[in-house]
Amino acid sequence: MSWARIMTPLSGGEADKATVAAGAMLAEPFGAELAGVYAPADVADVLPWMGEGFLGGVQATALESLKEAAAVGEAKARAAFAACGYGKKQFMSLQTPVWAGLSAESRLCDVVVFTNDPARGRGPLAEAFQQMVADEQRPVLIAREGLKVGGTVAVAWDGGKEASRAARLAMPLLEKASRVVILAALKASSRGFDPARLQAYCAARGVDAGVQVLSEPGDAAPALLKAAEAAGAEILVAGAFGHPRLQEFIFGGATRTFLNSERPSLFLSH
């Protein structure tokens, strides 16, 4: 298995350089295309409060300001993308409706790369992150310090459909890893599951994965993060939003714990 196209949404901000660098790091071992997609603030988002059929001086000024900001942001995003030395890459700038364009581009990519701020609901790409994970159900990589392709990858496993989807979609990453460890918090789950099943699935694809059963009861997420750190994992693969999204929002859930952690980098899929 392999990946052919890695997408990096860009905002024209300072984080673009780190996002592009992470995308290139992920694309290079697969010879994949790196797609830099500039997603500006959408003019269509401000039209409803202007009033149908009316465009006064204040509103017109606001529209012009948005257009000017988008042009400046695009120039900065292009510069950050051009500074990346990876050769197989393509830049594009989205026009209104931006979110529809972002969705369309994501459907023809293998992984979408973000940094920490959007994943934590901060900055101009926060909505894009939620859109990719929850609505488009695209696999995302949250790049953090220490990201490495070809090192140790930990897989959080609970036998559920989100975790299984994440493990399947991450298989190219697992195939490149020097070590794969399956982390199973059996006592923290309400369902019964056998981590050996995932181990066998990996073996059928040529991946020699170890299994570590965690003994801690209660909330699984902190134990999984601790175990991933102890294993020296550069990347943790996990399912996202395993509970209904409203329940995740109210009670936090494992996804929120993973997103609020500092390390390792995360490969998430819903």
Score class of each variant (00 low, 15 high):
S103G: 12
A44I: 09
G56M: 11
F267N: 02
Q59K: 13
S269L: 03
A134R: 15
G31E: 07
S65Q: 14
A231M: 07
R120S: 08
R197N: 10
L34T: 05
E74D: 02
K89I: 06
A200V: 04
Y201A: 08
P9L: 02
G192N: 14
A230W: 03
A134K: 14
V207I: 15
E52N: 11
N116E: 13
D45V: 06
A128R: 11
S190F: 10
A79M: 06
E175D: 09
G192S: 14
L147I: 05
G123W: 05
G51R: 09
A228P: 05
A62D: 10
D117S: 03
A154H: 01
A204G: 09
N116H: 11
L174R: 05
G123D: 04
A32N: 01
A62K: 15
P118W: 03
G242W: 02
S93W: 05
V155A: 14
Y86P: 07
V207L: 11
D208K: 05
G53N: 13
K89A: 00
A62I: 11
G252F: 01
L214V: 03
S215D: 12
L125A: 03
P172C: 09
L214K: 09
A104S: 14
Q247F: 11
A233M: 01
G13N: 02
L63T: 08
W99R: 14
A100S: 13
C109N: 02
M92H: 07
C202T: 10
V111A: 06
P40Q: 07
M92N: 07
R120L: 10
V140W: 08
S269D: 05
R107T: 05
S164Q: 10
F241M: 05
V140R: 04
E64V: 01
V98D: 01
M50T: 10
G85M: 05
S2Q: 15
A77M: 02
D194A: 13
S190P: 11
R78E: 10
E64A: 05
G232N: 05
A221G: 03
K89N: 03
D135F: 13
A39E: 05
A154Y: 00
R144E: 00
V180L: 07
G218K: 15
Q95L: 12
V113R: 00
F81K: 01
A69Q: 13
K76H: 07
A156F: 03
D208I: 11
A119F: 02
A35V: 15
M1P: 07
P118V: 06
S178H: 11
D219S: 14
E28W: 04
A41L: 14
A228E: 00
A233R: 00
L63M: 15
P222Y: 09
K176N: 09
Q95W: 10
A15R: 01
V133P: 04
V43T: 11
L141Y: 12
P217Q: 07
G36C: 04
F54Y: 15
A156N: 04
G242C: 06
K161I: 13
M7F: 04
T8P: 01
L186S: 03
N260C: 08
